[in-house]
């Protein structure tokens, strides 16, 4: 059985800064990293590999330099890495992205049965959490999002039991294979690659599939296949730190000011 992990190379959004003068994004020097949620997806796939001996493939859609992200997955121990890169894939929204990823998984499935697909819960640059469900729908897989624990993977019985982390509650769910999981950070602690694996992965083969390989209708992918588009991007208002009241002499007043602020910004879930 093959486990497929979807990973994405993202700009390290915590390093993005806003130019205080022009109020625009300073992207200079912002490095690309592996989407942090995806590292947990890779780890879970590798745990399946450790336990059941199944093979793991990592796929990523992105520009040619996204290869670095797949190399990191290889260093951690995935068996196969495929980069989906083609001009026609560019500018895709989540609908078009899931189409390409699903097509790639279907192609992998022709060689080896795919039992589990794992994605990070969302990416830190887009924060949509939509690609995972998109892929599951297109592949007609069971869909389990926000998984924070895998209780059981029964390969012979072809089912999986997991815990899902939702607002204020946890759901224990059982689903038949094949399944797509999206995972949260609490699921596991990603392994640190050994030097041997890093060196090994440095010249391991990252396959590159373009649309000649996938043969998708160009009108359904990339910018053309994206129903949504960004009409405007602007900088949010930045709240500067604000000192409230005179807490030393009037604690009640300061507390009230804080509550007023929290109400104004709708921070309270009372």
């Amino acid at each position: 059985m093959l486990v497929v992990v979807c990973v994405k190379q993202v700009p390290d959004t915590t390093q993005v800064q806003i130019d205080p003068v022009t109020n625009t994004l300073i992207r200079e020097g912002v490095p690309f990293i592996v989407n942090p949620y995806d590292t947990h997806a890779v780890e879970e796939a590798l745990r399946f590999k450790d336990r059941f001996g199944c093979r793991v493939a990592a796929i990523s859609m992105g520009p040619p330099n996204a290869e670095a992200t797949l190399r990191k997955a290889l260093a951690q121990g995935v068996d196969r890495a495929v980069l989906l890169s083609d001009r026609s894939f560019g500018g895709a929204d989540t609908l078009a992205t899931s189409k390409v990823l699903a097509a790639a998984i279907e192609k992998l499935a022709k060689e080896e049965e795919v039992g589990v697909v794992i994605c990070g819960k969302q990416t830190i640059d887009g924060d949509t959490a939509q690609v995972g469900p998109g892929i599951a729908t297109r592949l007609n897989f069971s869909q389990l999002t926000l998984v924070d624990r895998v209780d059981e993977l029964d390969l012979s019985g072809k089912k999986i039991r997991v815990s899902r982390k939702l607002e204020g509650r946890h759901e224990h769910v059982e689903a038949p294979l094949p399944v797509l999981l999206t995972v949260v950070r609490e699921l596991n602690r990603p392994r640190y690659p050994t030097v041997a694996m890093r060196l090994e992965s440095a010249d391991a083969q990252v396959e590159v599939w373009d649309n000649k390989v996938l043969q998708l209708d160009v009108n359904g992918i990339g910018l053309k296949g994206s129903p949504t588009w960004v009409s405007r991007i602007f900088s949010p208002e930045r709240a500067k730190g604000e000192m409230l009241g005179d807490g030393a002499h009037d604690p009640e007043g300061a507390a009230q000011l804080l509550i007023d602020k929290m109400l104004e910004k709708d921070l309270l879930a009372l």
Binding site: P11, T13, T14, V16, Q17, I18, L25, I124, D125, G126, D127, P227, T228, W229, V230, S231, R232, I233, F234, S235, P236
Partner: peptide, 12 residues
């Protein structure tokens, strides 16, 4: 988007 660093207006 971008970890809250920018706002994007999206249309369909």
């Amino acid at each position: 988007a971008f970890g809250g660093n920018i706002m994007a207006t999206i249309v369909c």
